[in-house]
Amino acid sequence: MINFDYLRTASVNATLDAIKREPRAAFIAGGTNLVDLMKRGVTSPPRLIDINNLPLKNIERTSSGISIGALATNSAVAINEMIRSDFPLLSQALHAGASPQLRNMATVGGNMLQRTRCTYFYDTTMPCNKRQAGSGCGALGGYNRMHAIFGASDKCIAVHPSDMCVALVALNATAVVRSNKGERRIPFGDFHRLPGDTPQTDNQLKAGELITAVEIPSNKFQQHSFYLKIRDRSSYAFALVSVAVALSIENNRISDARIAAGGVAHKPWRLLNVEKALTGQPASVETFQKAASIATQGAKGYGQNNFKLKLLPQAIIQALETASS
């Protein structure tokens, strides 16, 4: 690891000033992904701005829902009483990710910004357009068992590794970001982007912007939500496929449905077609099977990950059954 400058800031404004002075700097919060990337030489920011002292850790009810500070740790959010009672899907998704130690370190903002776990991205001797534009995509024609089936490009087929973000996109969350120019809100579904021709860019965040909070609107999914994560071992592993399901069921009929999947795309993948197929239908296995059958419309396997085309619908049915029961 290169020896970098280290700067600790105490306020959002000081932080925004600091990043303006050195745009190549990186913010560090939990460090669970960034420190690893720096050790491996995948990224080498000349300066780290430690933002852990910023007052962005609160979890608060708002008139329309809840606001979670970007520096709230994954474990703090997962065990928060308001989150557990009003947004159990988020708590479940967080508990499905990483390990207790990492969840104690990792923050909400950092989780959103974590990089892909694609092996070619991490191995600096291999081609990877995300790490080094123009070097090629190693996973295409290579080891792509963990890779995308939706929205990939011929430049990149990596997936976003977060569990939390899958739940947040299903819950119609909004990212709140600040820069010297002020504050803006980005709907969660738009926050992460598809690789296209520029896979080096993971999301819509602009230079000089800092995530300050995530807001989730109130909902009626408390009784019927479930996060299902399928992985190679029982815990502490990234998803082969994960499914976040939130249903509102009235008189055994689905009045509102949200479904998103993880481990399938460069961003948490909202399955609007499946949601549509569920809405207004009876909460039955037949409905679930029918809805799941269209989940992989437009999906494409790259060889080793073809199984996801089969696994995703099965996981959706399973998650819907669990959530509805």
Partner: peptide, 25 residues
Amino acid sequence: AVFDHRFGRMVNNNFADYHIPVNAD
């Protein structure tokens, strides 16, 4: 342990990609 035979390199040479059992298994 998986190789990318095009490069002759192992691609999962770490504990996140090469899984050994955890307590929950």
